[in-house]
Every structure is written in structure tokens, then in C-alpha cells.
Design a protein around this nucleic acid. Structure first.
Lengths: 232, 232
DNA sequence: TCGACAGCTGAGAGAGCTCTCAGGTGTCCT
DNA sequence: AGGACACCTGAGAGCTCTCTCAGCTGTCGA
């Protein structure tokens, strides 16, 4: 499925005091093969970061103890250049521009999709570790999350960003069945409030593009659970 | 203007037999600070590539001598993993999916915008050299081509992809004046056939976002020539 | 001062993407 | 067999982005 790639031994620090979100991020990154440490307090985060062996840090702005800006500024002042991905609230209570000046490498506005977070984080972690890009493969299906390119056999399949995110979620876990709720969480974010039917709609779009033109179906429905991508 | 960044000594090989296009690519990459070698024949390209000191290779599919696929496949078979960016014609005479399987790291469909090419190429070259990402700065304006984020002073400015490309072209050459035709070539591609007035339209959009809300203008018109970004 | 031309901008068409909704289809259990 | 429920899908609304066009404004030179 995943070729020439491993994240084992790559450590990520997550600093976020929203328990549910932090757990969700942690679980997702562990599923990616990262070693994840989660702390809920700014000062804890700073101490951990100083230990120094993280490939990247996911840092919320709003934190008890010491806020994300200060953690970021302090680390940079100490000449610690571990890549930092800042999480900012959309209400703009804190100033997004500031993070830019403080030495954050990337930032993400809440609420964000899990797929986007891991994509950005992989890019950051790769930058510091120099590991090669990866291509997801399941049978004759191939998906390159970096260049956002998808092929089935000899055909190139054009995907919209949403379609790509859904397929990526499915392929990362193949051949496992991915529950519908997980897709919703990972692609639309844990606080999506629309019609969950959107998952079915997007699976439908995907099938039109990667199944309809071919003899064998790659996307299977597992009734009452979710979907899976199978070898074809 | 550009901080903590240099591409000097980073060599790029361009293999393309369309003279005009190859020259345009070469000029653009040299303006970026890359050392560029251009050859127009597949076999030449292969020999050059074997010399081995390139950070990345831009490789057209359609070539006299030996086509791009074969060059790519041969290099990989020889265990040469220099990052390759394939250029494919949009008419699909050659199969895009094939490049994927042959070990190309990225590919771009013609006609492409110069800004997109250099962005992808920088990503590839950085991957192999491990250099840090860069942020363009002119006065209080900052633009991160990697994360596509723009700020002026303390404000975050949301840009569409086209707007970003225009601003990036301007900022990369700041404080020089960028001729209107250069913007057209770099952002819309050398074979854009629409109304050149599009440049004025997009500069207008940019000004609405990065000048109107502020006291001092960052984008200046140089009548009869083009535009420039100045310190503000 | 006035004409010519460069540049500016508002209006709007067209395309693509996302999401909602409602009605249809299929499956499973009793 | 029939009902309940999961899933599928076509239609279409709303939005953003891109680009065209036409008319306006400002500038420069004669």
C-alpha cells in the first residue's frame, strides 16, 4: 500500500489544551506512523520542545500557562528552529500575522480538516528530515499527496481537492474499512455541522471518476460501517 | 528583499527542444539565482544528467534523440535519483500516467505558468538540498510562496492563486520594475492568447487588498513599462 | 488646451467546486 | 412479503475565481 516510506521514529509534539481536538490530532498522526507526544499547557510544551528531538511541533495559539506566540518566540530566541505549525482560532482574537513574524513555519486556521493538517505536517517534517515524498498505492490506483495527482492503471484521474482528501483518507488506511464518521472527521473536520450525507455524495463523485470507467471497482461500501479501497 | 536565501551554486538542467520555451524557462530560473544549463536533445540531456551535479532536471517528454520517458527511465535504472520534473503536452499524445511509474517526481502540463514551474522546481530542489523555505519581504509586505500566505504589517491578506502569482512575480524582482509583458509570460504563460488587459485587472485586484486599506501604496505603476513593489 | 493613449475599474458571463435536498434503489430483518 | 433503514444520485443553489469588455480617468506631448 504505502511504498518506500516510514515515519517510525519521527517524533511530533502537539501542544493544545482542547482535549478532544488534541486527542483527535494525536490519533491521526499516530495512524500516520509518527510518534506523538501531546501536552495541554504552554510551559509544558516549551520544556518538551527544548528536549529537542521533535521533527515538528503543532502549537495552538491559545494555551494556558504560556501562549503559543510566546512559546514560539522563546524557542526561536533560544536558537531552536524545529519547524512549528501554529493553530489559530478563526475568530481572530489573536493576530494571525504575528505568527508569521515570530518564526512559525506554517499555520492553520481552526476549524481545519485532518487531511490538511497531516499534509502540512508531513511537508514540515520532511523538510527537516530530508526523507523522500511518498506515493500511496493500492492495486492499480496511485495517489501522490504532494503533487495531488491520481492515476488508475494508465489513466490520469483529475480530482478536486475534496475528492482527493476523501480518497487519501481511504487509501492511507487501505485495505481497512474507514468508518463514515472518520471520513467526516478527517476530511470535513471534527466540527462539521452539515449533512453527513456529504460523505456518500463524495464517494459517489469518486466512483464516477475512478470506478465507472473501469471493469473492476476499487471503492467498496461496507454497509453500516463505511468504505474501503480494495486491490483491483 | 529576499531573506536568508540563495540559490547560487544550485544547478538545474533544462531539457527541451522548443527553443523559445527553453530560453524563457532558463531566463526565469536564472533570475531566481539558479545556475541553469539548457540542452535541446534527449541524449545530450542524458549525458549531462549523468555528470550528476544537478539539484533538479526539467525534462520535456517530446524530444529529438531520446524522449523524456527514456531519459527518465534510463537515469533511474542507473540509480540516478536526481529530482525530475516532467513537462507534458496537453494533447495527451504521450501518456501522462507513465511518467508517474517511471520515477518522475512531479510533472507539469503545457502550457504552464512560469510561476508554477519555479514553485514546483524550488520544492524539488529544496527537497534534495535541504535548504530552508523562504519568505519574500518588501518593507512591511511579506509573502510566503510555500504556504501561500501574505501579510502587510499586522494584517493577513487573503489572495487567490492568480493574485498570489502576480504579487510573487513582482516581489521576486523588487525593487525593479517588472514589464507588463513579463508578468503576462510568467503568470499566464508565454502562449496566453487573451486580453493583455488582464494584468491591469489583477494589479487592480491586488491593490484593493494590499493598498486600499493602508495609507501608503506598495504597488506602483510605471507608465509605459509595468509595475513595481516598493518599500512602504 | 486638446488629442491620443495608457491605465483603471465596474459589470457581468462562464466555469468549477461544494454542499443540500429529496426522491429512488437496494438490503436486511422480522 | 413487507417495512425500516442505509445508501445512492440527479438537480440545483450558492460561492469563488477567472477573464472579457466597455467606458472612464489620468497623463503626456504637441
Amino acid at each position: 500500500m504505502v511504498m518506500g516510506w516510514h515515519n517510525w521514529g519521527v517524533r511530533i509534539l502537539v501542544v493544545d489544551d482542547e482535549q478532544r481536538l488534541a486527542r483527535s490530532i494525536g490519533r491521526g498522526l499516530e495512524a500516520e506512523g509518527f510518534d506523538v507526544d501531546v501536552v495541554h499547557d504552554g510551559l509544558d510544551g516549551l520544556w518538551r520542545a527544548r528536549e529537542g528531538s521533535y521533527a515538528a511541533i503543532v502549537l495552538d495559539i491559545m494555551l494556558p500557562g504560556m501562549n503559543g506566540y510566546e512559546v514560539c518566540r522563546t524557542l526561536r530566541a533560544e536558537d531552536n528552529w524545529t519547524p512549528i505549525l501554529l493553530l489559530t482560532a478563526k475568530d481572530g482574537e489573536y493576530d494571525e500575522a504575528e505568527g508569521f513574524e515570530l518564526g512559525a513555519d506554517d499555520y492553520l486556521r481552526k476549524p481545519f480538516s485532518h487531511v490538511v493538517l497531516t499534509a502540512r505536517l508531513r511537508a514540515l517534517a520532511r523538510r527537516s528530515s530530508g526523507a523522500p515524498a511518498l506515493v500511496l498505492r493500492v492495486g492499480e490506483l496511485a495517489l501522490d499527496p504532494g503533487t495531488r495527482r491520481c492515476t488508475r492503471g494508465d489513466s490520469v484521474v483529475e480530482l478536486t481537492p475534496r475528492e482527493h482528501a476523501v480518497l487519501e483518507s481511504l487509501m492511507r488506511r487501505a485495505p481497512d474499512v474507514v468508518p463514515k464518521q472518520d471520513l467526516l472527521d478527517e476530511v470535513w473536520g471534527i466540527d462539521f455541522e452539515g449533512d453527513p450525507n456529504i460523505v456518500e455524495v463524495y464517494v459517489g463523485y469518486l466512483r464516477r471518476k475512478i470506478d465507472k470507467p473501469f471493469a473492476v471497482n476499487a471503492v467498496r461500501t461496507v454497509r453500516g460501517v463505511g468504505y474501503q479501497v480494495v486491490e483491483s
